[in-house]
């Protein structure tokens, strides 16, 4: 070690220069947080109150864009689709994810193989997912044709060509892609539960299914909440899947809000409509997040 310098370091250093390197290293984070997440979001919300068409401009028109938005059939269809897709996908993904995790948690042989097969769809993009299921659900060659070939001539299963049920055709693909993730999270949650709980339940003579319902699921509340938030924030963003699988068709039967936003902003040069629609998406995410944050932090206080 070099001899310590003889100068006194008695003066309190300038606050800004303390930890200077850490501050420099954090510039990208600060810039992202301020410019992109806060700045860009605010910009869009502000411009949703203008009449911007091809180019953004600041001539405020109040709630006009929102009035028009909620008077547009395509938007209403999008919202309705998202609601159906959202509710179904949330319930089914949670259910399937939990059941699969519970099955795998029963000390199954080849657990890794099963898990690998159930999770691989999550590695694939929504585009690939959408295109594969578009092909499988093709009425001339896919599932419908296979069943007809077996002899059931009148069997009809063409969700992608039937406006009434097209969103469920997308749902099939979405659940196939995403349920593996939820299974893995649930499995991690199940593994986090103390072995002794199971032993205690066995000593008390509680049947396995009842142990799950009465003991395990209540203990996994935080895991369920995390899974729910994850599914929910994914649902709002649904876009690629629809583009790949149906392009919003037939007609406008499978439109979703994210696609509405994209089309308004980048295809039909109606910027402010796009801004208003995306602001509505933001609002819905906030509505989902607030109860979650309440549960998280409220729960911590109680604990």
């Amino acid at each position: 070690m070099s001899a310590p310098s003889k100068t006194d370091s008695a003066k309190r250093p300038v606050r800004l220069l303390r930890n200077l390197n850490a501050k420099i290293a954090s510039i990208p984070m600060v810039a992202t947080a301020l410019v992109v997440f806060i700045g860009c979001t605010t910009w869009t919300v502000v411009h949703s109150f203008t009449s911007s068409k091809l180019l953004p401009k600041l001539d405020f028109v109040g709630w006009e864009q929102y009035d028009r938005l909620w008077g547009t059939r395509r938007w209403l269809v999008s919202i309705e689709n998202l609601a159906w897709y959202g509710v179904c996908s949330m319930v089914l993904t949670l259910l399937i994810g939990f059941i699969l995790a519970a099955l795998l948690d029963r000390k199954v042989r080849f657990e890794n193989t099963f898990r690998t097969i159930l999770l691989y769809p999550f590695a694939l993009s929504f585009i690939v997912t959408g295109l594969v299921w578009q092909w499988i659900l093709n009425p001339d060659f896919g599932v419908q044709q296979v069943v007809r070939d077996w002899g059931w001539e009148s069997f009809t299963f063409d969700p992608l060509y039937n406006p009434d049920i097209v969103i469920f055709g997308i749902l099939i693909a979405g659940i196939w892609q995403g349920s593996g993730l939820i299974m893995v999270i649930m499995l991690a949650g199940l593994r986090g539960i103390d072995e002794d709980i199971w032993k205690a339940a066995r000593v008390d003579g509680i049947p396995t299914w009842k142990t799950y319902v009465v003991v395990i699921i209540p203990m996994m509340r935080p895991v369920f909440v995390t899974a729910l938030v994850l599914i929910a924030s994914g649902i709002v963003k649904v876009y690629d899947l629809v583009v790949a699988q149906t392009s919003g068709g037939p007609g406008i039967a499978s439109e979703v809000p994210a696609k509405y936003v994209y089309d308004k902003m980048f295809a039909s040069q109606n910027l402010a409509q796009g801004f208003a629609a995306s602001t509505m998406m933001l609002v819905s995410v906030i509505i989902i997040l607030i109860p979650w944050a309440y549960l998280e932090f409220g729960g911590k206080k109680r604990g």
């Binding site: 310098s5 370091s9 003066k11 309190r12």
Partner: peptide
Amino acid sequence: LDPTDGEIHINDRNVTWEEPSGRG
């Protein structure tokens, strides 16, 4: 840790704001 107030001297040298490695 940075103190809120007060001084630390090591070997008759005020090292309150010295880096850990420079304090001997």
